[in-house]
Simulated scan of single mutants.
Amino acid sequence: MAMRELSKKDFEVGQSVALRLQGNRARHAEKGEMSYVLGTVQKVGRKYITVDGIQFDTSSGYDKSDYSANYQLFENEELLLEILEKEQLYDKLRTTFGSYSSGSGVSFTVDQLRKACEILNI
């Protein structure tokens, strides 16, 4: 996912935020566990935003860590869910059209492909 700049103006103490699991935290998640957790902003500083005792760097949105980050901070759950859905849709398109050329049995008519290109402005 592209890095986005956070602003401390987007956060206030007591605000509910979403934390996307990253790195080792995501790899070691239990099967069926959500890919994110909710947290509450405890402190908004110049360089860090503290959520449930975890400091997040405002320049990257990732938690402060000596190794790989475990969480990525999002202003609210709705924003994170929209990004997750967008990634899933991209994956579906990539799977469908990526395997189309390799003869996966997916069959489109020329009209269907034209309409898809028209809708996507490509």
Rank of each mutant, 00 (worst) to 15 (best):
T96M: 12
E75F: 03
Y90A: 08
I49Y: 13
T109H: 03
T109W: 02
V44C: 13
V110P: 02
V41P: 04
K86N: 03
L81C: 03
Y48S: 09
E77S: 07
Q112N: 07
Y100W: 15
I54P: 02
Q72A: 14
Q88M: 07
A69N: 11
S107R: 14
G98P: 02
D111N: 12
Q88Y: 07
F108K: 15
K47V: 08
Q88H: 08
R94M: 10
D66P: 11
V51F: 05
R46V: 08
E77H: 11
K64A: 12
E87I: 05
E75R: 15
Y100K: 02
L113I: 14
N76E: 02
F108E: 05
G98M: 06
Y71P: 06
S59G: 07
D91K: 06
T109V: 01
T58W: 13
S101R: 14
Y62M: 09
Q88K: 14
Y90R: 13
T50G: 01
S101W: 10
S102G: 01
G105R: 05
I54F: 02
F108D: 04
E77N: 06
Y67K: 15
Y71R: 05
K47C: 04
D111R: 02
E78V: 10
F97A: 14
G103F: 08
G103Q: 05
D66H: 10
E78N: 05
S101P: 00
N76S: 06
L89Q: 15
L80M: 09
F74G: 00
L113A: 11
T109G: 08
T58P: 07
K86S: 03
Q112K: 07
D66G: 09
T58S: 15
T58K: 15
E75G: 12
Q42F: 02
N76V: 00
Y67R: 14
S65Q: 14
L80K: 07
E78C: 00
R114Q: 07
Q88S: 06
R94F: 09
K47A: 08
V110Y: 14
S107L: 09
V41K: 07
N76T: 01
L81E: 09
S60N: 04
Y67S: 12
S68T: 15
E77K: 11
E75S: 12
V44R: 06
S65P: 04
K47H: 05
D52K: 09
E75T: 15
L113F: 03
D52S: 11
K64H: 13
N70S: 13
G98Q: 01
E82M: 11
K43L: 09
E87T: 10
F56P: 01
T109F: 00
V51G: 14
D52R: 04
L79C: 00
S59N: 11
Y90E: 06
L80A: 04
Q88A: 09
E78Q: 13
S104F: 07
R94G: 01
L80S: 03
L113V: 11
G53F: 01
Y100G: 02
S68P: 00
F97W: 08
V51A: 06
E82L: 07
L113R: 13
K115H: 12
G103W: 07
S99L: 04
T58M: 15
I49L: 11
S65W: 02
L73E: 10
Q88R: 12
D111Y: 05
V51E: 10
Q72T: 07
S68R: 13
Y71L: 08
T50L: 10
R114Y: 05
R114L: 14
V44H: 06
S104Q: 14
D111C: 00
G103A: 11
D52A: 11
S59T: 15
V110G: 03
G61W: 05
T50C: 10
N70T: 00
V106A: 14
